[in-house]
Structure formats: structure tokens, C-alpha cells
Amino acid sequence: MTPPAAPVQAFFLDGALGQRFGLLHTPPNGQPVRGHVVYVHPFAEEMNASRRMAGLQARAMAQAGFAVLQLDLMGCGDSAGHFEEASWDDWVHDVVLARRWMLARWPGEAWLWGLRAGCLLAAQACRLDGRPAKLLLWQPVLSGKQHLQQFLRLQLAGDMVRGESSRGNTSHLAALLAQGESVEVAGYTVSPALAQGMTQADLHGLPAGTQIVCLERGDDKATAVSPALSAQVQHWQAAGCSAQASVVAGAIFWQMQEAPDSPGWLARSLRGLGGAAPETVS
């Protein structure tokens, strides 16, 4: 049997720096609400690539009793502002704003769900808040610095795919950012304030007592998470957080346009939130 549809509405949230576009998924009418989830999308093109999976998961969470907000950060998607004007701190404040807004309407279990660089933003919002939180982290970026370097590398890869000669390597672009200049990579203009904040971002320093559920993509054969994520989990546990990480088979949906669905991620995430997976996830 198909579960009743979870209502979804699009709206704008008033932020200090203009309006933010949000998609709000709520549990089907008459169903008790367990709490809320704020989704923090990944960086640049990964946001577009992962749109479908994020939507599928948000709907599945709503059917499991959570109100879910998918917010477009400043200068991203349909939110106000320009990408090139956005700083890392602006994005962190967008996450804080979204959390506060959801908490006022749907108290109860309060989850932050990040994908890739969105995990870094979610972690920073938790640190600012200072209270134990609940985090669902999808394929978390562990080092903002490394993530930025990989993004700058997209320039090289793009030049190569188009058969053009390279317009300078990654260290050249990093040097420009360090000098306070913006750089354009793959159609995205990155400001020095964005690059600087991302470079310093990591997943450490979460309030003790924070509950963390991590999903990492692997092949069907893989059973253990990567050494890097495993070390991060030990770090969290040593700092008094409850952390678990598991490998889930699926496509690299945050990198591919039109990636096939990865239903295992939806079911595993719902289990992480402490709810049973609905029988049909569609």
C-alpha cells in the first residue's frame, strides 16, 4: 500500500540578508509529529546533482513523522543574494536561522542533516549553539580545506574535458584567494570570505553528548568505513559524543547528473533517526 502523501510547500524565510527559499515537508495529516529535520545542502554543483535524492529522503522522513526543511543557502538555488557575495559565515547563519524557525514550530527531536560540505556547516551551527545536537551526516566532508582544493581542481578537469589548455593550476587559484581576490571555477565565483571560512571548517569540537549518524558510500563488498571517517568517529567518541558510521551501497549521487536512486540510503537514514522505514519509499 502506498503511504499517504506528505504535504510539501514552498515559501520564503526572511533572513538578515534577504529571503531564503525553503521547501517544507510535513507529516501526512493526522500523523503525530516526532520532531524536525533541517537539511543543509552541499557546495556548488553537488547541490544540483543531489537534489533528487535529497527530495526523496525529505519525503520519506516526513512520512516517518518529521517536519523537514530544505533551505537554499544565500546565493544558492532560489534564495536571494549572489553566490559570489556569500561568505561561509552567512551560510552558517542561514542554518542557525532555519533551525530556530523549525524549533519554534516543531519542537521535539531536532535533527540537522548535512550532505558533503553541508555537514561542515551543520557542525559549525551546532558549535555555535553549544548544546548537544543530533546530526545525520551523508558522505561528510572531513576537511573544508581539502574540499576547496578539490573544487578548485574542477577548473583543471573542465579545461581538460573541453580540450582547452589549462588556465592555471590549483595553487595559482588558491594564491589568488589568499590575496583577497575572487576566483571563478566551473561557473561559480568564490569569494575570499567563502574560501577562508571553508578552509578552516572541520567536524571537530561538537558539544559533548551530540548524537551523530554517518553514512558513507561503498561498493556492495565494502563493510568498513574509510580510515579517515573511522578516525573522525573515534575523535567524536573521545570528545563525549555518540557516533556511528556505516557503509551504504549506492551511486555517487552528489557528483552525477541523473544518478540512479540509492534507496539503501533512505532506509538507513530513517533507521538512524530511530524510526522504521516505511514499506514503500517512492
Binding site: E45, L154, A157, G158, Q255, Q257
Partner: peptide, 12 residues
């Protein structure tokens, strides 16, 4: 399928 994002993914 081998676009610039995929090349980057392949490298990683």
C-alpha cells in the same frame, strides 16, 4: 558520463 565532475570523481 565523463564530464568534468566525473573526471574529478575519478581522480579522487
Amino acid at each position: 558520463e565523463l564530464d568534468s565532475m566525473a573526471v574529478l570523481g575519478l581522480i579522487t
